[in-house]
Structure formats: structure tokens, C-alpha cells
Design a binder for these strands. Structure first.
Lengths: 213, 213
DNA sequence: CCAAGAAGTGAATCAGCATTCACAAAGAAA
DNA sequence: TTTCTTTGTGAATGCTGATTCACTTCTTGG
């Protein structure tokens, strides 16, 4: 045996891998999954098509990883907000706001990650992602009910509904070539909906009052 | 000129067209869009692959029509409930219940129509369908606010959120090879969520009281 | 029954891409 | 430097399934 990967080599490989992922993410961000053929990804990463397969077993696997790591990142952000201090209501608001704002920031990417048709495997990853988002909200709901901020309710269903609600409300403005206006109002509308839905009795704003109007 | 379509012929053609649509719908219902290749549809409709193209310009067009007509049907049902008599709250409940129950009845079909990846065009039709569903709920919301049953709110956003909420809550139980239990509880949970979300003050059941618990 | 046009057939074609593969270039040990 | 191994190349391959098309069969009006 006359070959062992040197440290430098090791690093360069890892770097390539990252570059592939990044290129894929970028391509999706600018034109959806269609834009992101293996050839395009390879070109944009400065490699040949064949090389991609030294790093990922298949196109699907590559995009599953792209999607999953984006979701991981998103979850981490939400988690940080959800585990923070203060009213549960406040934190719920924070989560929804934060997600919505980021989605509106990078609409193509968000659209692709939330709704664009893609291969089976990617879709499954997406479903899993939604479940994970749901779990963040679920624990928030549990906490809120325990703290007496929200009335008793089916937290599993409620969590799924919340995810669905803001997702859907976001999709239309996010979808390719949709007009994008009233971002503030949109986000606030979504938040208000969610807060009413969980039965929050305060608005969760900086120093808020009632939410019912 | 020695040929004009006779009445009988005309009918047979229309009948073929219907049979194609029906076959397509059935195939989707039993195995999602993958199952429904042109060849399969043709076979199941008792025609050859080529013949399909006498009736539809492309596969996408065929499935757009399948989807659209399913949505039309669904909308008609919801419309009937929404335009019926009684509390707005009651009717809103009725719409959500009805949709959810039908979706749980034919999970494959519902999954395909709501979420399964498919070609661009089909996806666009799906988006349009969601918008149309949204409109039904929007008018319900407007009516409810005017009647004083619901507090003032952004009805556009609210409508989208409602559609998203029940859709999402349905997806997991509907998705291929998911366990399906607690249907009643699921539907009731979704309804409760939606009613709280719009700020309904009664449960909308047969002769209901408060919804808050 | 015949001719003209329409509908139906299904094998061949085509297109779009992912995936492979024979080969080349580079890296590691000796 | 030699040799072995890994990594990179990119054209060729292969697959999948929609779409086409030359041809057959049917319908209609005369």
C-alpha cells in the first residue's frame, strides 16, 4: 500500500465537497431545481460532471443534502428563538416572524425548499423537514399550554397547522414571478393568525396588549 | 367533401375523452403520478398511446385537466356549504370538515393533488387551485367579520393560512404509507385550530358553545 | 361499393439528463 | 524516478417515457 491521503489533500477534498454543495444551493436559489443540473453544478463548482460522483452517489443524494443542511440551519435559528427567554407567545411570534422574513428575503430558494416539485427523495427530505419544523412549534405549544398562556389543545395538530399556515401564506408571494408587496403587513398578518390560532391572549410584541383585534 | 362527424361519432369521441380523463384520475388515485404514464392511461382507457394525442396536446395538458376538474368539483362542494344557511362559523367548520374528510377518504388522490411532485404546468394548476380554495374561505371570512362573528383581520392572509393549515395537517396522514388513525380527532383538531384562528367565538357545532377549550 | 377524410395503432424516434467509464493527471510512498 | 493509487475529465452510454408518424381501419356521403 503506497498511498495515504495527506492532510492537505484531505482538506482540498473537503473543500471541493463544500464547493459543490454551495454551487448547488446557489443554482437552486437563482433558478429553482431545473436550473441545477449536474452539469451546471459541476461547471459552477469548477469540476467536471464525473467528479461530482466522487463526492455524492447521485443527484438526488446531493440535493437531499443541500436541502437538509439548509433545514438544519433554519431549525437551529428557530430553536435558538424558541429556547430563549420571555413569554412563550413572544417566542412563537419571533419564530414565525423570523422564518417568514428569511423566506421573503430569498424567495426562489424558499420556494424550491418549500414547494417546488423535485425527485422523490428530495420530497421525502422536505417532508421530514416539515416534521422537524413542526416539532419546534409543538414544544412551544406544550410549554405555552403548561404556562397557561394558551388553552388546552391538540399540540401535534396545532403545530402542523402553524407550519402549513405560514408556509402557504408565504408561497404565493414567494412563487416565481409573483408580485411582492406589503411585506410587513404580510408577516404581521401571518403572526396574528397564528397567535389567534393557538389562543394566545397577548400579542407577544415588544410590550404588547391584546391580540384579538 | 365526403365526411362530417355524425352525432353518434361525436358522442363516441366525447366518450373516449371522458374515458381517458377517468382512467388518468383512477391511475393517479391508485399510485400517484408515477403510475400514470401515457402508456398506462392509454391501456387503461382501451386506446393506444398515440390516440391520446388526438384528445390532448401533451401529457401535462391532460393532467392539468384532470387536476383542474377535480378542483372544480371540490370547489363546488365547498361553495355549496359556504353559501348555505346558518352561522358563518358553522359553515366554515363545514367546509374544513368536508374537505378533510374527503381527503382522508382518498389519500393517494389527495396527496397527488395537494403535494406530489409533478411537471411545472401541473404545479401551476395546483397553485391556482389553492388560490381558488383561498377565495372560498376569503369570502367566508369577509362575511363573518361583517356579521360580527369574527374580529377584524386580514382576510386574504387568513384565507391562505387556513388553506395551508388544513392542507399541511392532512399531508402527513395522507402521504404514501403513513399510518392513519384518529381520523375524527384529526379533523376536529384542524377545525378547532381554524376556528380559533379566525377568532370565532362559538364552536359552530350542531348547537355549540365556546370553542376556546 | 367507392373515394376521401378521420381516427386509431404501436413501433420507432427523440430528448433530456443522469450516470458511467476509459483514460489522463496528480499525489504519495519507496 | 518508479509505481501504485486516487482524483479528475468529458465524451459516450443508457434510461425513461413522451411524442411522432407511416400505416391500417373505420366512417361518411355519394
Amino acid at each position: 500500500m503506497s498511498y495515504r491521503r495527506s492532510f492537505l489533500m484531505e482538506e482540498r477534498l473537503a473543500d471541493n465537497r463544500q464547493r459543490i454543495l454551495k454551487a448547488a444551493r446557489a443554482l437552486v436559489a437563482e433558478g429553482g431545481f431545473n436550473h441545477a443540473s449536474i452539469a451546471a453544478v459541476a461547471a459552477s463548482a469548477g469540476l467536471s460532471a464525473g467528479a461530482i460522483y466522487r463526492y455524492f452517489p447521485s443527484k438526488a443524494a446531493l440535493f437531499v443534502e443541500v436541502l437538509t443542511s439548509a433545514i438544519d440551519h433554519e431549525i437551529a435559528i428557530l430553536q435558538a428563538i424558541a429556547k430563549g427567554a420571555g413569554d412563550v407567545t413572544c417566542r412563537l411570534r419571533g419564530c414565525v416572524e423570523s422564518f417568514a422574513n428569511r423566506a421573503l428575503e430569498g424567495p426562489y430558494l424558499a420556494y424550491a425548499f418549500i414547494a417546488e416539485p423535485a425527485e422523490q427523495e428530495v420530497d421525502e427530505a422536505r417532508l421530514l423537514g416539515r416534521k422537524r419544523f413542526g416539532e419546534v412549534f409543538k414544544s412551544l405549544l406544550i410549554e405555552g399550554v403548561e404556562a397557561g398562556e394558551f388553552p388546552a389543545q391538540s399540540v401535534d395538530i396545532g403545530a402542523a397547522c402553524i407550519v402549513g399556515a405560514f408556509t402557504e401564506a408565504l408561497i404565493r408571494p414567494i412563487a416565481p414571478r409573483a408580485k411582492r408587496e406589503g411585506r410587513k403587513e404580510l408577516v404581521e398578518g401571518i403572526v396574528a393568525f397564528c397567535l389567534r390560532a393557538v389562543g394566545a391572549t397577548i400579542s407577544g410584541r415588544k410590550a404588547g396588549r391584546g391580540v384579538r383585534a
